[in-house]
């Protein structure tokens, strides 16, 4: 068995080792506790309950849809940030990352003010098209996309910046327009970055709580996603909360496994 030390630069100082182990325990113990307290024998029946199934289904559906929305707008946005220089570029990049640091509840309030029935845009959507977004499944998708898009944009922009520009130049010398270059050269070259960004974005959307409950509310079957169901179940049926939590944990681990090549090693 290997022992700690053995580094050629001498022993690991305990002032670093002790807090490091404390931190590790702090991160791992709650998850272990969750697994220990899980009612494994009744897991199957609890998962089959309609409320759980609805919440899980809704979460997967909205997170996937939100990721698609983020892809359609986020990849071109990342391209714009990485490939086109325009005045205010740095400001735009800063604005894109705001939802990353903004408390999600604030995002939900902001969405409500703009897209709510009496909001700046929502009022017009309501009167002209009869479309209401708040407290609907579409609202869930919007709330999740708002919070998750920066993850995709930043990841894809990084991939675009790391990609060798000269391939795009080579394509141009062969007569490819910028759109053709993007479609046939850039996109395939940064595909791994887009996939990684998409998974990250999807995971963030799946876990979204604050913006969703503020903008879309908490209606079972319509806007009650997994995180909302966990929070609600904790007060009425703690066992159910644990089961739902374990499912979310499993999904997170799966995401991590999917990204291991890019983010961990």
């Amino acid at each position: 068995m290997k022992t700690i030390s053995a580094s050629p630069r001498g022993r690991v100082p305990w002032v670093l080792l002790v807090p490091a182990l404390l931190g590790l325990a702090f991160l791992v113990l709650p998850l272990a506790g969750l697994l220990i307290r899980t009612p494994w024998p009744t897991m199957g029946t609890r998962l089959a309950q309609p409320e759980v199934r609805d919440a899980l289904g809704l979460s997967l559906f909205t997170a996937t849809l939100a990721t698609l929305v983020c892809m359609v707008c986020g990849v071109p946005l990342a391209w714009l940030l990485a490939r086109v220089s325009f005045p205010g570029l740095r400001l735009v990049r800063a604005l894109v990352t705001v939802p990353l640091v903004l408390p999600p509840v604030v995002g939900g309030v902001a969405l409500l003010l703009v897209l709510g029935r009496r909001g700046l845009v929502g009022r017009w959507l309501d009167s002209a098209f009869g479309i209401t977004l708040p407290f609907t499944t579409a609202g869930v998708v919007l709330a999740e996309a708002f919070v998750a898009m920066p993850f995709l944009v930043i990841s894809v922009e990084g991939a675009l910046r790391a990609a060798d520009l000269r391939y795009e130049e080579a394509a141009a010398t062969l007569g490819a327009s910028r759109w053709t270059v993007f479609r046939r050269v850039t996109l395939p070259l940064v595909a791994p970055g887009i996939v990684a960004g998409g998974i990250l974005c999807w995971a963030r959307a799946l876990g979204e709580f604050g913006a969703t409950i503020t903008f879309a509310g908490n209606f079972p079957g319509r806007t009650q996603t997994m995180p909302l169901a966990v929070y609600l179940a904790l007060e009425t049926d703690p066992q159910a909360a644990i089961v739902l939590s374990v499912v979310l944990l499993a999904v997170s681990v799966a995401v991590l496994a999917g990204l291991r090549d890019r983010w961990i090693s």
Binding site: D164, R166, Y167, A171, A172, T173, L174, G175, S177, R178
Partner: peptide, 16 residues
């Protein structure tokens, strides 16, 4: 570039 009647061979080829 894409509208010029050129062909270019790059130093490290840059094959896609």
């Amino acid at each position: 570039t894409e509208l010029r009647p050129i062909g270019m061979v790059f130093q490290d080829y840059l094959l896609f």
